[in-house]
Design a protein around this nucleic acid. Structure first.
Lengths: 129, 129
DNA sequence: CTGGACCTTCCAGTGCAGGGTAAGGTCAAG
DNA sequence: CTTGACCTTACCCTGCACTGGAAGGTCCAG
């Protein structure tokens, strides 16, 4: 399979596949005499895995770690569980931060919705923020 | 006030202040004969405003819009209210997205916490993701 | 043998908000 | 007169995940 076909099959672009190769996520099985990249069918599963990882909010660096473990012949299960646990904690923290921010912005917005232009003091730029 | 003092007073860096100047957020009141930037006290309020805007999750581009309105002599109240309303919608969407992602990751993690290594199929890289 | 679809490498840019470093000018104290 | 703190501009670098484009090679159909 050449790079264009692999891109079409996995719903990505040749640009992205070469980029993944650059950062060590994906290697072609070989090259043709002309230098064209040749991929085996396992590349499709690998890219599906990458896509699922991205969908779970993992970074390409984290996904690469998992793939590295696997490429070294180990089952990455424990590593993946760890990664998911960490991701869960990060998500909780991120959600809590956004929730707190939302509360702040709500208060600001409520104040701004009951306008009182006379109280705008030049020295504070805008009293609503 | 010179740039170093303004940075110290507002808790930022001279780098940041020059950067703000580059993107049109802040202009020095003038320059000394030697070319040193001179700021008036109003610069402190302006930077506090910028800091409050950042704390509310506004981008520097949005903050600049508000400052531009003010610099043109208008009260930016309406614009700020608009911005806050938009920000609130964005935050809600962002929180909802993260919440959905959290649910997905939770499911993945729960599956990974009840291990069954035997079911790892080589063709899917890892059954947990 | 030509056209077009495909492939190659390399370089550069996106958005966001700055940070790092160099090479040099200025100013006040000792 | 020198030292050290401060200032200036100019340029490149960071992380993240790509994306765009240029210049050229390859392959197949007509």
């Amino acid at each position: 399979m050449r790079i264009g076909e692999l891109a079409a099959v996995t719903g990505t672009t040749t640009k992205t596949l070469r980029f993944y190769e650059d950062i060590g996520l994906l290697r072609p099985a070989g090259r043709t005499a002309a230098g064209y990249r040749q991929y085996g069918v396992e590349a499709v599963a690998r890219l599906d895995f990458i896509r699922r990882g991205r969908a779970a909010g993992l970074t390409l660096a984290q996904i690469r770690e998992v793939l590295d473990v696997r490429d070294r012949g180990h089952a990455p299960c424990a590593h993946v569980e760890d990664l998911l646990a960490t991701r869960l904690r990060d998500l909780d923290a991120q959600i809590a931060d956004l929730q707190a921010l939302r509360d702040t912005v709500t208060q600001l917005h409520d104040a701004a919705s009951t306008p009182d232009p006379g109280s705008c003091h030049p020295e504070q730029v805008c009293r609503y923020l």
